[in-house]
Nucleic acid binder design. Structure first.
Lengths: 142, 142
DNA sequence: ATCGAATTGTTTGATTATCAAACTATTTGG
DNA sequence: CCAAATAGTTTGATAATCAAACAATTCGAT
């Protein structure tokens, strides 16, 4: 049982360090573009999951709808996104990326793929596949 | 080469999802205590790496020293940390956790170990070891 | 069909986090 | 010994956030 505790400690240690490194990598990538972190996060979500209404965007961003209103105002002012009235519910808006917003998303996505590529080349093909399977299992259960 | 691209895409996909889940797990743990995220982050760093001066803390938090001054003021007011004059440099303060701060850190650390334990039990012992090795390799190279 | 309750998004008012730049006190190096 | 560098604080401005009140619309029970 002491053995299991040790494994747990070690896993936590590596996870926290990994998380820290990933976080600061993400910040530096975003700041190297001329984009604020919060805007970049919204663009990332819209690019990844596609158009959605304010409520869903707020939920995915983990902020209130009020704050999301401000964020989307900013994105519209910057030319990255637009509000479109929802067809079947006139209370609701669908937020979608403009062409410029899509370009910004693709630029960001390229950075992500570069990182993934670097990781894959460090691990080699077999370990990369194993890593993907492990992450998949964790994502399903956590 | 198309094969490699696909692997990269898949790895990125899983990494981003994992990162998202870990982030919202962390937020919910912190908010379940009555702690602000930024304070919790400082306490985590002080608990993990031990006492350090303002500059190092600022650097590890990824914020300016000015902002760190405010953060440490808050921690002192809340009874979680204290400033101690550095022995050999009277410009400098060493920031350390109080007993209450240490308890808060240990509480947070327990949550982390629980998550690590959950992950370990989902993966089983062999995959957990593999996962740790992989994370280790990535942390060394990224 | 209608009306009260629920839902969607916005506004408002307050608070907090943040930065850059100016500042103070101290140390360091030539 | 003094100029430059360094550690931390203060200041003034801005951005991000929340909770609560609000308006417009939809839903559901009767």
């Amino acid at each position: 049982m002491e053995e299991k505790d040790h494994l747990r400690e070690e896993l936590n240690e590596k996870l926290v360090e990994f998380f820290d490194r990933f976080t600061s990598w993400e910040s530096s990538v975003i700041e190297s573009g001329n984009m604020k972190i919060s805007d970049a996060h919204a663009i990332e979500i819209l690019g990844h999951h596609g158009r959605m209404n304010m409520k869903e965007l707020a939920c995915r961003l983990g902020i209130t709808t009020g704050t999301t209103t401000m964020a989307v105002d900013r994105l519209e002012r910057g030319g990255f996104a637009r509000r479109v009235r929802a067809e079947h519910d006139r209370r609701s808006y669908i937020i979608e990326l403009t062409e410029e917003g899509t370009l910004a998303y693709e630029e960001h996505h390229r950075h992500h793929l570069n990182l993934a590529g670097e990781i894959a080349s460090v691990l080699g093909e077999d370990d990369t596949r194993t890593f993907i399977e492990i992450l998949q299992k964790i994502n399903e259960h956590i």
